[in-house]
Design a protein around this nucleic acid. Structure first.
Length: 850
RNA sequence: GGGCGGUUAGCUCAGUUGGUUAGAGCGCUUGCUCGACACGCAAGAGGUCGGAGGUUCGAGUCCUCUACCGCCCACCA
């Protein structure tokens, strides 16, 4: 046994981190079988610069559960990954180096990124861009691992994966091919939500609404064959050249007589029909809307259901296309001339110009009326999404099939949610799905879609006849590999082939993390030992993406859930309880806080946040955690100190057994709480007992434990030492999942091996038959004596002549069993008891000088 | 428009199936250097548990209505 003279928290991270690594304390033993393993599908954090407090919060909570399960004797399968593929990384590379990917450029072998990003982004070849992405993520991932190690996450770092890594690409492409073979993946030319800055399609799951200022513009459509003018209101007058119809509600009396009539658009004079559709809202604007291809998703529904023609004007760069759409033969040159005023302009510029033109022609009625309305954005985007028609790959997810939606709702019910109410978010998301999952992205740093297309004799790709690789050759890159039966020089020539230019969305790969980490398809032995996994911990904001998508993939591939339980952590708020966001500049970075308060203190803060409950970054709470850790150092030093005074045990004294019984109750509560994934309650229970143990029990028995009682040694002293050491062992282990460094330190003072590989405390190892009242009453009496001394403003060491305790017979009987400990803890000459109805204590202090 | 969560001491939060004078930490006040602990210890002040009604012997805890805050979802011309 070796206890430092002056215990300290400083340097514990640097001392134990390398030790755990050297001892392989958290290494996974793959000889264990499925029932002996607890498998956690750890979220791979997005690699985009730095981790934030929200990640620290969630991962620290998960780690407490991992550690408690490990102490229960389960073998932890707990790998960490980095989600480095995708647009987040591309964005970061663009900003970090000041470059932009232009896939039309050839590779410049001498290319080197600028020292500092310039004012204008430098266009570079695809491969050069991908190289920079790979270079930067390696840097970032090093920093991420450093932080996680400092935080004390008990992952097996030898199993780390990345979503751009070879294993992930192989799994992702294999799953894609299998879904294609089963008809769960398909490609289709269709209207698609499009980000004009990133120049890629985006999925429903990546949308967010933002309140934007706009204005209703009232426009006159002209009746033909004697029909009167029709007034419509629109927020997007610039899409007038894309107008294909007007639409009103079938029951709307104002327009009922005019359905199927033709009117002509203002400025362009294009004939369009007036149609009826129940989605038209009589309350909105003038009750009749213009349908354009496409202003919003409602236009898409109308266009599809009313079988309208396509008149696209919006280009993929967010500017109106050069040529006007096909308006039919009877529309004259004037219309083409009017359109030339708009061609090449952004939506905003075009709107300004067309409003001027409409005002001049007198077809704009009154002034535009400003409104605020929600507009769809890509969640990372800065300009509103447009809708363009394009060929894309989709995975079926129930967006177009009610049966499949019902299947996924049932999967949601099958999953155990912690807290349970988080399932509501899943349900409302699945119920609200309206398209299949769009997985292709017109981007560069991602898993390529493993498909080629033949090129016909006319030089056009045959999109409907994709050529596929065999699973054995995966992963492939269709941009550099050639399909079977072709040679590389046939790329891009008639009769040759072309690779699919797109990559998969990052979620199309990260939705396979359970398959990737468990070795699906690569390591069948590991797979059967670990899949389906036990727990998916994650944040609430990615239920609709990561959690749902992962369920979709496992359902199709394995006809099962990917995991049994999910624990959804809360959101982290800034110290003023505002949502943290980079744009607000209130993001708190973790490393300075870890260095200031210590890892255990940060973990304590995180574990104090209830499951699923939003929690503010609170340095006060971190200080409390630090204080707890210090207390654990000191009380451990005390207990181990008195153990050096003489033999420990057997535990025969009633108050010793009473304390241990009370601790046994705490152990039960902590164990039950952890079973429900409620680490916060477990911490709170352990902590509550611990402070009572330090403040009351230790004070009550310390004199006896020192062996001062009847000279040298007696049974009482041995009993106290036995109880103190039994309690210390249990308490150190109860705190081990939370305060990982300090518990390892104090454990090392008197035990062999890591505390993190010790058994979780059990009721059986404590005295389950003590009378809880003995310790409780003794502590209460001691408290009143302390109050008397405090009121008298004297030291707690001040001598007392006489303590008289009045209470009920039952409580007095309990007290008598500990009366000598109470007398000495109170520094009193005597303790007398008197029968009464409730606790009352008179404390007679020895007069100073008497 | 639909749904979920929250509203308890100045602040941040506990309060498990309804049960004696509602808890903790921080902050505040007053003391205390005693053989674990001044990165400490002890004691104290401070709340009619958002509002209204109801069930019950008894409600912070259950029911109804309501206000406010946060979030999720929604076809948003």
């Amino acid at each position: 046994m070796s206890v430092p003279e002056k215990p300290s928290l400083d340097g514990l991270e640097q001392k134990w981190g390398p030790q755990w690594e050297a001892d392989r304390t958290y290494a996974f033993d793959r000889t264990k079988t499925r029932g002996e393993i607890f498998a956690i599908d750890t979220p791979p954090p997005t690699v985009s610069g730095s981790l934030h407090m929200g990640s620290v919060f969630g991962y620290a909570q998960t780690d407490t559960i991992a550690r408690q399960r490990r102490m229960l004797g389960l073998e932890l399968f707990y790998p960490m990954g980095w989600d480095d593929n995708g647009l987040a990384t591309e964005r970061r590379v663009q900003n970090y180096f000041g470059v932009r990917c232009d896939p039309s450029l050839p590779v410049d072998p001498d290319f080197a990124p600028p020292e500092k990003p310039g004012d204008r982004e430098i266009p570079i070849a695809r491969q050069s861009f991908v190289d920079l992405c790979e270079q930067l993520v390696v840097e970032d991932e090093k920093k991420f691992e450093e932080l996680w190690r400092m935080l004390g996450l008990s992952v097996d770092w030898s199993m780390t994966y990345t979503t751009i890594g070879e294993r992930s690409r192989r799994a992702s492409q294999r799953a894609f091919l299998r879904m294609l073979a089963r008809g769960e993946a398909y490609s289709s030319e269709a209207p698609t939500l499009w980000d004009v800055d990133d120049r890629t399609a985006v999925a429903q799951a990546e949308l967010e609404d933002r309140e934007m200022a706009a204005a209703y513009h009232a426009l006159t459509f002209h009746g033909v064959d004697g029909g009167g003018d029709v007034l419509i209101e629109t927020t997007r007058p610039e899409l007038l050249p894309a107008c294909v119809a007007l639409v009103a509600h079938p029951d709307d009396e104002r327009y009922r007589a005019r359905f199927d009539e033709t009117v002509r658009t203002p400025l362009f004079g294009v004939p369009v029909p007036i149609l009826a559709h129940p989605l038209a809202d009589p309350e909105k604007g003038s009750g009749i809307a213009m349908i354009c291809t496409f202003g919003d998703t409602t236009d898409v529904v109308w266009w599809r259901e009313l079988r309208l023609p396509l008149r696209n004007v919006m280009g993929r760069d967010g500017r109106l296309v050069a040529e006007p759409p096909d308006w039919g033969e009877e529309v004259g040159k004037d219309a083409v001339a009017q359109y030339a005023e708009l061609a090449g302009k952004t939506a905003k510029q075009a709107q300004k110009r067309i409003v001027e033109l409409l005002a001049e022609s007198g077809e704009l009625v009154g002034d535009p009326k400003p409104i605020q309305h929600p507009v769809k954005f890509y969640e990372r985007g800065s300009r509103p999404l447009e809708i363009v028609s394009s060929r894309q790959w989709y995975f079926r997810n129930g967006g177009r099939e009610a049966d499949l939606r019902a299947t996924f709702l049932a999967r949601g019910e099958e999953l155990h949610w912690h807290p349970a109410h988080m399932r509501q978010r899943y349900d409302s998301w699945v119920e609200g799905l309206n398209t299949d999952w769009l997985v292709s992205r017109q981007r560069f740093f991602g898993v390529p879609i493993p498909v080629w297309y033949p090129i016909d004799d006319g030089g056009e790709p045959v999109w409907d006849a994709p050529m596929l690789p065999t699973e054995a050759v995966l992963p492939i890159d269709p941009a550099s590999d050639a399909p079977d039966g072709y040679t590389p020089d046939q790329r891009g020539v008639p009769g040759g082939f072309v690779g699919d230019p797109d990559v998969m969305d990052t979620w199309a790969t990260s939705s396979l993390t359970p398959q990737i980490v468990t070795g699906w398809g690569d390591d069948d032995d590991l797979f059967t030992r670990t899949f389906p996994m036990d727990l998916r911990p994650q944040g609430p904001e990615i239920i609709r993406t990561w959690l749902f998508d992962t369920i979709v993939r496992a359902h199709f591939e394995h006809d099962s859930l990917p995991w049994r339980d999910t624990a959804i952590n809360g959101w982290v708020l800034d110290p003023d309880r505002k949502k943290m966001s980079k744009s607000k500049g209130n993001v708190v970075t973790p490393m300075p806080l870890l260095e200031k308060h210590g890892s255990d203190a940060i973990r304590y803060w995180a574990a104090s946040g209830r499951p699923g409950t939003d929690t503010a970054v609170d340095e006060g709470q971190m200080k409390v955690g630090r204080r707890l850790a210090i207390k654990l150092l000191n009380v451990s030093k005390f207990v181990l100190g008195v153990m050096g005074e003489g033999p420990a045990g057997p535990i025969v004294d009633p108050i010793d057994r009473s304390m241990l019984t009370s601790l046994a109750v705490t152990v039960e509560e902590c164990t039950a709480a952890f079973e429900r994934y409620d680490y916060a309650r477990a911490l709170e229970r352990a902590e509550r007992f611990f402070w009572g143990f330090c403040d009351d029990y230790v004070e009550l028995v310390k004199h006896r434990a020192y062996g001062d009682a009847a000279g040298s040694e007696d049974d009482g002293a041995a009993s106290a030492r036995g109880a103190l050491s039994a309690a210390l062992s249990v308490l150190q282990r109860l705190f081990a999942p939370f305060l990982v460094y300090v518990t390892e330190e104090v454990w090392s003072w008197w035990q062999e091996g890591s505390i993190h590989r010790e058994g979780w405390p059990t009721v059986a190892e404590l005295a389950p038959d003590g009378a809880p009242l003995v310790f409780a009453v003794a502590a209460e009496v001691l408290g009143t004596v302390r109050k008397a001394k405090s009121d008298a403003k004297v030291s707690m060491r001040a001598e007392v002549d006489r303590i008289v305790v009045t209470d009920t017979e039952m409580r007095l009987a309990a007290l008598r069993l500990a009366i000598d400990d109470v007398r000495r803890a109170g520094v009193s000459a005597s303790v007398a008891t008197e029968l009464g109805v409730a606790l009352a204590v008179t404390t007679t202090l020895v007069e100073p000088g008497s």
